[in-house]
Design a protein around this nucleic acid. Sequence first.
DNA 1: TTTACTAAGTTGATTTTTTTAACCTAGTAT
DNA 2: ATACTAGGTTAAAAAAATCAACTTAGTAAA
Lengths: 146, 146
Amino acid sequence: MKERYPLPCNIAQTLNIVGDRWTLLIIHEILVGNTTFNDIKHNLETISANLLSTRLKALEQQGMIVSELYSKHPPRYQYALTKKSKDLEPVFHALLLWGREHLDTCYKALVNSDTGNDVEIGYYDQKTGERIPQEHLSVIPYEHQT
Amino acid sequence: MKERYPLPCNIAQTLNIVGDRWTLLIIHEILVGNTTFNDIKHNLETISANLLSTRLKALEQQGMIVSELYSKHPPRYQYALTKKSKDLEPVFHALLLWGREHLDTCYKALVNSDTGNDVEIGYYDQKTGERIPQEHLSVIPYEHQT
DNA sequence: TTTACTAAGTTGATTTTTTTAACCTAGTAT
DNA sequence: ATACTAGGTTAAAAAAATCAACTTAGTAAA
């Protein structure tokens, strides 16, 4: 595995996996239910077949997706997300909300289906469940396992 | 402006602005306080000077950063984030947390500075302030302004 | 006052990635 | 028999990124 960003940083290392052109959009298509090669290809409109093929293979190698034969005769595949890529949802939501705020033309909103109100991202203490104000967030070095 | 991803999707349009190689990492460097050309360059290690130069110009055109002369003699510039790019913080936090969970070697953690506990991303209703469980989140089309 | 060094880049050549376009193999449908 | 669809592959061309050298203006040291 060649590393594009050889930096000791979660963000850089995460982008080594999902930061290639089209990759996040491909995962997002599968997430919203477009599971076959052509579904994805048609929805992403301008992606080329060979690049989609390359990306799907790389994602499978990374354990981000699995491909399964859903029809033997004729052979037809469909792609499914693993937990690893489903866990990107907050990234997608964060990008969507940024777009809602800052794009000239916004296409989607994230709402509370109970109230119809707009949703915002917040930070919560994993143990106490309490909401944490921005000022109390702290990025700390994490001594890692070898 | 040539659009890389010509799709009616907040995520694609947002990635048209910040999805180019190195771009998010450059913004992140400025966010953590590395404000001069060489600060950024040295911290990103393998980025080339011309690409950094190109990206900074594009980001300035997009209103993501501003450059200011901080020394007239000799002329020295430093880059600062605008609200537009500061609002990417949830994206960075989401990427960091994904890395914390899924990278083989994780470098950083996001904690509650009061308790030292790990932080997780959650969603709350903009009006009521209540926390919203995943199942009640809904992405809806947003009729946009011309 | 020549030499070396730093900040903040620019320029041009090379390499890597992406895109474009054509092609392929099964199987289906008409 | 002909056309069409799913799910790709291959090769060539174009675009983007990297590498290496160079620039300009100022500072510092000998």
